[in-house]
Design a protein around this nucleic acid. Structure first.
Lengths: 337, 337
DNA sequence: ACTTGGCACTCGGGATGACCGAGTGCCAGA
DNA sequence: TCTGGCACTCGGTCATCCCGAGTGCCAAGT
């Protein structure tokens, strides 16, 4: 249904439009990409491509621009992943090598991705639900207040203050800490809920109200609240020109954690690079943007995702290359620490 | 030099221009603000105001718009601080009341300020240098790695991992923790540097290399690195229309912690609301914006600053009111926890 | 059955020019 | 010192025109 040349034409249109940002016509197409046919032939092909919905013209007698469907085909079948240059790889390495912290890794990764792709970068913290507990610490702040610190194997550190119903003794804190660590250490965070449910029996009766407060905060932290966390960077790479209906909408979406979660979360968590183009997007405000994302993690299993967000008119092969490479390095860093 | 009516004219010009966003002429001015003189008189006044540099005309035979100098005079002498409505006060209260964390307080404050003023909100974390140590915790993560958690009286929690030169024993950790807490508890963070210098003598000789690693991380955390932290929100309130030379520049500045620090930091840390208008700004990329900021803190002493950033053409009285009110509430919340 | 050249047609965008009106500066008179 | 009058300026808008890139279609060529 679409012969080889038509595909070549589509590819050429996408490439030209991405680089020039202007609708591309038959004539320009022929001589820029040495297709050995006449413009008229190309016109016929373009007519077919348009009929099938891969390209469109903004107004009669203007060049064609790719539609979401066109980009989709381009990404799926017409382009590979462009590997990074040596210089870029080296830049990634040196940039990430200095990190000493999970927070730091994430921050650097965001900056790096944004700079590398000149797009908006989006990095998710390692998911709590896919991590295991490494340590739980309780620190007395006042007679009736504790600081709960929870550390996971992915290096993530969550902290929360706990308001207790009554004063607690130093000893009770020590005991509680011991119990918590004994029972939770090494557990998947998804199991924690059920484990915690059985804990009250293991503390002395007098301490139960306070313990209960701690337990409920643990559950809240892990399950209900900011279970996931996303960091955004490079917002200044958004150019008003790319977003006809104003980039206000886009900026708004980028400020909503929940929205970002939906954006990143709703794709199969494979370690393959996934691309979501324009209207394929689950978020209303980002219907004119594309997301290139991939999972990253220490081993085979992805613990979170990262990616870049840009106008649908973006350089997919390069973006995919950058995202994949960065994810790989971040995985290594995480595994090494 | 400037009689009363001229000042009134300037005030009227500022108000009109802020609300309509269009250069304002003598005619419109007269009937919108019931000045009991003729347009011609106003014109003469405006000529004087222009000569003195308080207003300017974008092009010959257009209305006048205030200059930075004009806004300055307006803020200093022609307008007060507009108090918030009862509804707004209530909104602040309920919005901030639910916070249970310093992180949470800051996040909510940013959102609140942005929503209230429809501008970009900027909130600084309580300065480390003006806080005292409440607790230091060491948590063993691996044989040669510790997590250092530092808690201040303002509720701020800093965490850092420490790579040790050699393995450390449980006991040594306990001892080190005891030493640290004994020596640092209650100290101003500015004193910590000198105190830490004397510490090596108080640990056993064998542990000194490891202890030294911990100490140096403490110093790094407090002194060199992210000593201060600024959170931004409401970037979507920036409208391209307000920034002729593109808001990219502004967005870029807002992503740089260092820049934001300069922005907030370089004003006297009084608890008075300070306004920095346009070119008065120390940051190059923000020469077309104004900042309304104020210090906040638990008592009389400010521990950090917060404010809003917007186009020079902004509603100063309202912004000042909002900023002041929010700062006050945040101070209360902080004091109460 | 494709491909090609030719040709009429469309339409967006830039250039030009006229016009309107808001706004100004200045001046003479109250 | 204020006011009304008056000539002048100039940005924005609208209508018009024109150009050129681009298209679709068709008939002829391979």
């Amino acid at each position: 249904m679409l012969d080889d040349r038509k595909l070549a034409v589509l590819r050429a249109i996408v490439q030209d439009y991405v680089s020039t940002m202007e609708p591309v016509g038959s004539k320009t197409l022929v001589d820029r990409h040495h297709l050995d046919v006449s413009p008229a032939t190309i016109r016929n092909d373009m007519a077919v491509l348009e009929e099938q919905g891969y390209i469109a013209q903004p107004h009669t007698s203007a060049g064609r621009i790719p539609t979401d469907k066109g980009y989709r085909l381009f990404v799926d079948r017409l382009s590979g992943v462009k590997p990074l240059s040596v210089a870029e790889r080296r830049a990634i390495e040196t940039f990430l090598a200095g990190a000493y912290d999970l927070d730091d890794v994430v921050m650097r990764t965001v900056r790096l991705l944004a700079q590398l792709t000149r797009q908006v970068a989006v990095v998710q913290y390692p998911s709590l639900t896919r991590s295991t507990v490494r340590h739980v610490e309780l620190i007395p702040l006042a007679a009736e207040r504790l600081l709960l610190v929870l550390i996971t194997d992915t290096g993530r550190v969550e902290q929360r203050t706990v308001e207790l119903p009554g004063p607690i003794e130093e000893e009770a804190v020590t005991q509680l800490r011991a119990v918590l660590n004994a029972c939770l250490d090494g557990r998947m965070l998804t199991e924690v809920a059920s484990v915690v449910a059985e804990l009250p029996e293991r503390v002395q009766a007098g301490d139960r109200p306070n313990a209960a407060a701690v337990f409920s905060v643990i559950l809240e932290t892990l399950v209900e609240r900011n279970e996931e966390k996303v960091v955004v960077g490079g917002a200044s790479n958004l150019t008003p020109a790319d977003f006809s209906q104003g980039l206000r909408e886009v900026l708004e979406s980028l400020e909503e954690q929940v929205v970002l979660m939906r954006l990143l979360g709703e794709s199969a968590d494979q370690s393959m690079v996934t691309v979501r183009i324009g209207a394929e997007n689950p978020v209303a405000g980002l219907r004119s943007t594309s997301l290139v994302a991939v999972g990253y993690g220490t081993g085979d299993q992805a613990v979170a995702r990262l990616g870049v967000l840009g106008p649908t008119r973006m350089d997919y092969p390069t973006a995919m290359g950058a995202v994949r490479a960065v994810a790989r390095y971040v995985g290594q860093i995480l595994a090494g620490s």
